[in-house]
């Protein structure tokens, strides 16, 4: 399988995000059932499962985007570097900046390419023009977009192709200097080539970031994952390294999924 043995040895296993007794209800519907989870640092953790199993909701709980959906009732604890994001008295927006979000479809803000990347930096209160310029360039380079857009930084972000937009969204997320990247099926709207670029970026990014990737594509999980969490119907069924999980699935659900999901 894909796990690079040197990586595993070099990076110490430690937890960056842990979830305790997380429950999510929507009306009478129990969406997430008693989730307990540790996310290892500087790894790609893949949340795998069929659509509708609660993966996306779990991801949105991690940076409390569930606030946007009034019908959701969230209980439990999610610790990110000692802050319990669900119950903290601290400022939520600044905790959210510890995480960058990449959604299923790129959602560029309705402003220019430059301002998209600068948005989060400015929200931090940074006004120094040079510093902003420097960061915009740095993060656009980080996602390999700089050469494609450096001559039209001030044209609207929607003028980019979908694949470029998704990379722009990644750059925008990186610009707030997060520790974690939350990616919700980030390649599902993209063509194969753009998907490949994003996947390669993830491989490079995990040196400096922790990546939590939601996907229902088994192959993508096999290609990228250091740690796999298999979910079904709002519960965690199995978790482990891809080797353990895919070569030797314990639960019937995962066996079924591996046959049908491919």
């Amino acid at each position: 399988m894909t796990n690079n043995p040197t990586d595993t040895q070099v990076i110490q296993d430690c937890t960056i995000l842990s979830i305790r007794n997380l429950n999510v209800h929507a009306g009478n519907h129990h969406i997430l059932k008693d989730i307990n989870l540790e996310i290892p640092k500087n790894r790609i953790t893949v949340l795998l499962g069929p659509s509708g199993c609660g993966k996306t909701t779990l991801l949105k709980c991690m940076n409390k985007l569930t606030d946007l959906y009034r019908e959701l009732k969230v209980t439990g604890n999610i610790f990110i570097e000692d802050d319990d994001i669900l119950n903290t008295s601290k400022n939520i927006p600044s905790i959210r900046q510890k995480m960058g979000l990449l959604s299923q479809r790129p959602y560029p803000l309705p402003v220019s390419i430059y301002k998209n990347v600068a948005y989060g930096i400015k929200l931090k209160g940074i006004r120094d023009r040079k510093l902003i310029d420097y960061n915009v360039e740095k993060h656009l380079k980080e996602v390999g977009l700089w050469n494609e857009v450096k001559d039209r930084l001030h044209s609207p972000a929607t003028s980019l192709s979908i694949g470029q937009q998704q990379r722009l969204c990644l750059a925008r997320g990186l610009a707030v200097k997060p520790r974690i990247i939350l990616a919700d099926e980030p390649t599902s709207a993209l063509d194969p080539i753009s998907s490949k670029i994003i996947e390669n970026l993830f491989r490079n990014l995990k040196e400096n970031y922790t990546i939590i990737l939601v996907t229902h594509v088994l192959r993508q999980a096999i290609r990228l994952a250091d740690h796999v969490i298999f979910m079904y119907n709002g519960e965690i069924i199995e978790q482990g390294t891809p080797d353990e999980l895919f070569n030797n699935p314990k639960s019937e659900k995962l066996k079924e999924y591996m046959v049908e999901g491919n």
Partner: peptide, 24 residues
């Protein structure tokens, strides 16, 4: 919704999202 999620995840408050993204 994704646009509002994006703005919040970048560290905007609800109001900042409204001001910079929704109204815009």
């Amino acid at each position: 919704m994704g646009l509002r999620e994006a703005s919040l995840s970048l560290g905007a408050t609800f109001w900042e999202s409204v001001k910079h993204v929704v109204i815009r």
